Amino acid sequence: MRRKKHKLGVLTFTILSNDANKVVTRFQIPRIAVFIMCIMAIIPIVFLAYFMVTSMDQQQENERLATALNQKTSKAEDLQIRVDQMEEKTTEVEQKMAELNELESQLQEYITDLPINEEPSGGIDVPVSKADIKDGQDELILTYSQSSELIGRYKDTLAKMDEVNEELKYIPTIWPTIPDKITSDFGLRSDPINRTDSLHTGIDIRGNFGTPVYATAGGTVIKAEYYGGYGNTIMIRHSNAYQTIYGHLSEIKVEQGDKVKKGELIGSIGSTGRSTGPHLHYEIVKHGEPVDPNTYLNISDISK
């Protein structure tokens, strides 16, 4: 019985040859060794299958994570584009506001320079529709398009003011001397020397000897000499429309052909020519005809 059990614990392998003369070869292998070899052969297969399944799961997970990452990246890129657009828009609005501030400064300068007859108040009225204003807010909030439209209106206003300002340079709108007391108006009067009625083609402004006389508009000096009853005289052509005459001067500080600016010193008050005392005879000639200087005085101040 022991022998039978021993035989059952091994496997016998017989190797036969085609040659009948050769010895038959037999060898035995314990069953446990065969079992172990089978187990060892199966383990790599099991591990291979496990790793294949695990690898597929890992690949699917990686693909899922990659898809999620791409979605997050796409959202982040969209957000970055929006941020960039907002920053660009903010920069544009800041530039527009800076331009508005610059235009406002220019308007303030123009308002200061432009002649006024009334007490100072307010500024340039630029129409703003009710749609531009949000009720219940402490400040006006202008959108980009609204600010662009407002800038356009500012620029149009400035362009018109440039034209007016350029024209004003050559229109006699300031006092020719600092004393502003008129002693004889434009029009019919009794001649101060022969006491007969006569046409006074300008105005007489009281002043002391040597008081400065200024050009009332920019232009070209066409006469700077003694001129009959006017005495020492300066004539200035300002444009195709205007000329001004300054008579009875004690001193002439310009020469014929000189270019003068509005408010520039040109002479001094005196009593030369047909005069009863120191004063300035001042005339404005428009299109060849003398006009009343009072229409143009008090529009602006010589100190400006």
Rank of each mutant, 00 (worst) to 15 (best):
R2C: 11
K4H: 13
K5C: 14
K7H: 11
V10Q: 06
T12I: 11
I15F: 09
I15A: 08
I15R: 06
S17Y: 07
S17N: 12
N18R: 05
D19T: 03
A20R: 02
V23E: 13
F27N: 05
R31P: 03
L48N: 11
A49H: 04
Y50A: 14
D57A: 10
Q59V: 10
N62I: 09
R64G: 09
D84M: 13
D84I: 12
D84A: 14
Q85V: 15
M86W: 11
T90R: 09
T91M: 12
E92C: 01
M97K: 03
A98L: 14
L100P: 05
N101M: 14
L107G: 02
Q108P: 02
L114F: 14
I116P: 00
P120S: 03
G122I: 04
S129M: 09
K134G: 04
D135I: 06
Q137N: 11
D138F: 03
S147D: 13
S148E: 15
G152N: 08
T157F: 01
T157W: 03
E163G: 02
V164P: 01
E167R: 02
L168T: 10
T173Q: 00
I178F: 07
T183R: 00
S184Q: 07
L188A: 09
S198C: 07
G202D: 07
D204H: 02
D204E: 10
I205Y: 04
R206A: 15
F209P: 01
F209G: 01
P212D: 14
V213I: 13
T216V: 15
T216S: 12
K223C: 09
A224M: 12
Y230R: 01
G231Y: 04
T233E: 12
I234S: 01
R237W: 12
S239N: 11
S239F: 10
A241H: 13
Q243D: 12
Y246F: 15
H248D: 05
E255K: 05
E255V: 10
D258E: 13
K259V: 14
K261Q: 15
K262V: 14
E264Y: 00
T272S: 14
G273W: 04
S275M: 09
H281F: 08
Y282S: 05
I284G: 04
G288R: 00
Y296D: 10
Y296T: 09
